[in-house]
Design a protein around this nucleic acid. Structure first.
Lengths: 341, 341
DNA sequence: ATCACTTCTGAAAGCGTTGTCAAATGGGCG
DNA sequence: CGCCCATTTGACAACGCTTTCAGAAGTGAT
């Protein structure tokens, strides 16, 4: 492994020209069996490994696709990345990740880095870059976007119906008899957060339930904000018997706050989240939530990129969000929910 | 963004040679202010972006470091990767991830891919490749390994004292009055799992407590195995008042099993894990566990790689594992722990 | 003025592949 | 036996950048 073996060395060892070796490697043209055998022997004998850089420079293709995430360490994105990896595996393409850390500036930088690295295609998960920027990326390489819709690129954007799912989740609560349902929403700046809230409101309206402003709190999608919001809710003066947290992580925070206050879930308060993180199956009690099929989303996205790469149309499937009822929700037993104070 | 701008184009626009532009870009040599200004203007006017491939091919350096993980979607590795990213940021180096999926074969393939990609250095997190292979990698590029010690590369290997931490964690339980402590260990094939078990046994022995084989179960570090093990424990005939799960994920599984059986934590049974995953702060009750400073570990590892890259010695710090006592453990109140059956 | 140095700067040689082009080889057929 | 066409093959020019190498300018001292 000292000095990398080059094509030329292989060629010399096999007594042929570099072109011939390249042809065998890439199956670009016919080569006589005689030479083929000689080359293959030299290849394995010298343990040749093509230099990806040289190859990329010469051919213009790097066999890599850039993937931009917002937080590589979150269970949500982590699982999606695994899906992308899976979807790409066997295609010869390799994913290269870059993290935007939820900041437009960094996200933009991440994209530039990826482009400078000459990725053959790009996948952008979430994010909040101006549509214009997205279009310019799409002009440079095949692009697939998850979590937002860019005008002009609709075909390559995969978006899930958050509003509908939130509506159904709230319906579930209502069907269980809950009338006073609190909502811990995500940051208003976040499209998904607004959509989920809209679904919540729609379900309330449809059931003829009043929207109580004091029962809607804003969080930031992280546990501590859920904790804080739930604490405030419990200490507030408005009654409620259920909490809809806009994502699982905030639901975890809320769960702990309720525990601290001696409030039982689901006996006293029903709690629901959104995302269905892997650990939500193992919380106590297991959390009722909306399942986002993160892994599959990754796979689907990767597949779509491969299609684009081979010149086919995007063809992204429609994906339905489904409510997963577990044990954190229960029928409202008595007329009295939890009072504040 | 149509056709990428090349160095030559910039040079022409600025009325200088490509060499000069390159020199300004890399600060390789002095350039007269006059030309510098002209070049800089051309640079930004044309919005030049260096082609990383060409650069790598010419200079032999790609400004990237390969990072091999075992499971990109796990909170543990995810957090470490974030640390690595952080540690590398600002250095000009970019991390490129590849996943071994806990399988030696894939791990080996991942390393080869990274090497073919001409990464300038490599970080291997966990893994179980033969020492020989690791040494050959180290011969090719600067290498830093986390989670194992490779003979001959001790300086570049960061290993935490799992045994000691497990010992202290068990001590904590013993000090709380627990005499019959169950252990859900990780896969025996896993070094960390064996070390943690050794620590558990050492603490027991030191306290003169018997090692009850029926109270030691083997899991696979994932939630379901913890669930299964705890269920068996509760249904078994041996009494116990505490469970030490070899990692947090199995502790989560155990927690749910106990919940299902109507066993309270920590009132009836104390439960501890190992890793301190981010969500362990928000379980109910928050989990007593050993904190693995994953993020910092990533940072430290990255820093070390940068040192190696700049020709300095490895200089990995010693990192202590600390027990984090939270609310899943309590003093044993009565003489009677939980009986089996 | 001349010489010995410093700075700067451009030409040109790679870096390891791919892909084009034309030459070489071998058949088939008239 | 000669000609034409299809196969195989090697030479060589990119690809976009870095890095000698050597020449051109400029400086100061003699």
């Amino acid at each position: 492994m000292e000095t990398p073996v080059t094509l030329a060395q292989v060629a010399r060892a096999a007594g042929v020209s570099a072109s011939t070796v390249s042809r065998i490697l890439n199956g670009t043209a016919q080569v006589s069996d005689e030479k083929r055998v000689a080359v293959e022997r030299a290849l394995s004998q010298l343990n040749y490994r093509p230099n990806v850089l040289a190859r990329g420079l010469a051919s213009g293709r790097t066999m890599s696709v850039g993937v931009v995430t917002q937080d590589i360490s979150s269970p949500f994105y982590g699982d999606m990345l695994r899906g992308v990896e899976q979807g790409l595996s066997g295609s010869g393409y390799m994913p290269i990740f870059a993290d935007g850390h939820w900041r437009a500036e960094e996200e933009s930088a991440a994209i530039d880095v990826l482009l400078a690295r000459k990725v053959d295609a790009m996948i952008v998960l979430g994010g909040s870059l101006p549509d214009e920027k997205m279009r310019s990326v799409a002009a440079a390489v095949p692009l697939v976007v998850f979590g937002r819709t860019v005008p002009g690129l609709e075909e390559q954007c995969l978006r899930l119906d958050n509003e509908k799912a939130a509506y159904e989740l709230t319906r579930h609560l209502i069907e269980f008899g809950h009338r006073r349902i609190a909502h811990i929403m995500g940051p208003v700046s976040h499209r998904d957060a607004r959509d989920r809230r809209a679904g919540y409101e729609a379900a309330l309206a449809e059931a003829g339930l009043p929207l109580v402003p004091e029962l809607v709190m804003e969080g930031d999608f992280l546990e501590p904000s859920g904790f804080l919001a739930a604490t405030r809710l419990v200490e507030g003066r408005e009654m409620f018997s259920a909490i809809f947290a806009a994502n699982d992580q905030m639901a975890y925070g809320a769960r702990l706050a309720l525990h601290r206050k001696g409030v039982r879930v689901p006996e006293d308060i029903s709690l629901v989240g959104f995302d269905d993180l892997p650990s939500s199956t193992y919380t106590t009690p297991p959390l009722t939530t909306v399942r986002q099929p993160t892994f599959d989303l990754g796979v689907v996205t990767a597949r779509c990129v491969l299609r684009l790469l081979s010149g086919e149309g995007p063809d992204l499937p429609h994906i339905d969000l489904r409510v997963h009822v577990r044990e954190s929700t229960a029928m409202l037993r008595t007329a009295h929910g939890l009072a504040g104070r």
